[in-house]
């Protein structure tokens, strides 16, 4: 008999190896050159020959690499969930207005200080304040989108409502920008480039907590996601509650994307592209395979992007948002042209 479910063990094994390789590669890159054997020594918990190396690895590079994996895999999973829910290959993690909401929150904090008084500006250097501003903004816009979503039956309308809120936020940001000073605009622009570094361990731990909760939640939506592959009517006839599953899928995406945006800014492209890359590699629509595959691929690609951002001068880090698209877009185009078929 033909094996009905293809074994994906080999592919997963390969992905995990790649993930580890690029994780080590990512940790070993930076403005200070540290030999690879010393890095291993530090990672297994012993002291290396230089105390500064310990400090750099443990407090800068390790949290950054972990953040990269969480951001990459989290955004990719969110993108996959949105593409399946909306049955639209152009959907990504930000269709619910989360990035525009976060941008709006941060814009009010940084740019609004000239309008609402300069008291706010003093706090903008802290990650926590930025995180709180962006998550508040994201939460409010998301809430508006979700309230609107409960009033429409058609799932596609939610997509358009999310886009409309995005335009609305962009418009408000334009107005704020118009009245702001150059240094504030620059500061806002830097935030919008996204960044993986600068997170302390306590921030990484909070991030990790939310990330793991959402990952756990993903187990519960594998079934509804798979039945949605047949369309909403079939899913309903299979006993799936569309409303409940839709809300759970939206909630997981919202929390995951919200917390990522809060800590690393609006990182574009990954969430849209990685699900497509993964589907091209794995050729399946089964979410039991796709979710872990997308998570691994997302982590790997984010690590690669971050490594590239480090490379050019080793002194400066390029904006991660530019790298993801600069490096990722050609790959997706190449894959699509070569394979000729888009897998949704």
């Amino acid at each position: 008999m033909i094996q009905p479910i293809k074994s994906y063990r080999k592919s997963f094994f390969g992905l995990i190896i790649l993930l580890i390789v690029f994780f080590l590669c990512n940790i070993s890159l930076g403005s200070v050159a540290i030999p690879l054997d010393e890095i291993f020594t530090i990672l297994v918990g012993r002291n290396s020959s230089k105390e500064t190396w310990d400090f750099i690895i443990l407090n800068f590079r390790l949290p950054k690499s972990i953040t990269a994996i969480m951001v990459g895999s989290g955004l990719s999973i969110s993108g996959l969930l949105m593409q399946t829910l909306f049955r639209n290959p152009l959907a990504g993690p930000f269709v619910l207005g989360i990035s525009s909401g976060a941008s709006l929150g941060v814009a009010f904090l940084i740019l609004g200080s000239s309008i609402f008084g300069s008291g706010l500006l003093a706090y903008t250097t802290s990650n926590w304040v930025l995180a709180i501003a962006s998550s508040t903004g994201a939460f409010l816009v998301l809430l508006a989108v979700l309230i609107a979503a409960t009033r429409v039956r058609n799932t596609m309308s939610i997509l358009i409502i999310g886009l409309m809120f995005g335009s609305l936020s962009a418009a408000i940001i334009s107005v704020l920008t118009y009245f702001s000073q150059a240094n504030q605009i620059q500061q806002y622009l830097f935030w919008s480039f996204g960044s993986l570094g600068n997170l302390s361990w306590s921030e990484v731990l909070v991030f990790l907590l939310f990330y793991l909760v959402c990952l756990g939640g993903c187990f519960f939506i594998i079934k509804p996601l798979n039945s949605l592959l047949l369309g909403e009517n079939y899913a309903k006839s299979l006993g799936i509650s569309i409303q409940k599953s839709r809300n759970l899928i939206l909630l997981i995406t919202a929390i995951l994307t919200g917390v990522i945006t809060a800590f690393s800014g609006p990182i574009a492209f990954i969430g849209l592209a990685v699900p497509h890359i993964t589907k091209l590699l794995f050729k399946t629509s089964n979410h039991k395979i796709l979710i872990p595959a997308v998570a691994c691929t997302g982590g790997i690609i984010m690590l690669i992007c971050d490594s590239i951002a480090q490379l050019p001068t080793l002194e400066y880090t390029l904006p991660i948002n530019a790298i993801t698209s600069l490096f990722g877009a050609p790959i997706v185009i190449w894959l699509l042209v070569r394979k000729r078929k888009i897998y949704v």
Binding site: P4, I5, N226, S227, L229, L230, Y234, K279, K283, S285
Partner: peptide, 17 residues
């Protein structure tokens, strides 16, 4: 059916949900 990569086996197996 919406576009997807479902195989015949997987499609029939969804009936067991």
């Amino acid at each position: 059916l919406p576009e997807s990569q479902l195989t015949v086996f997987e499609l029939v197996a969804l009936g067991r949900q």
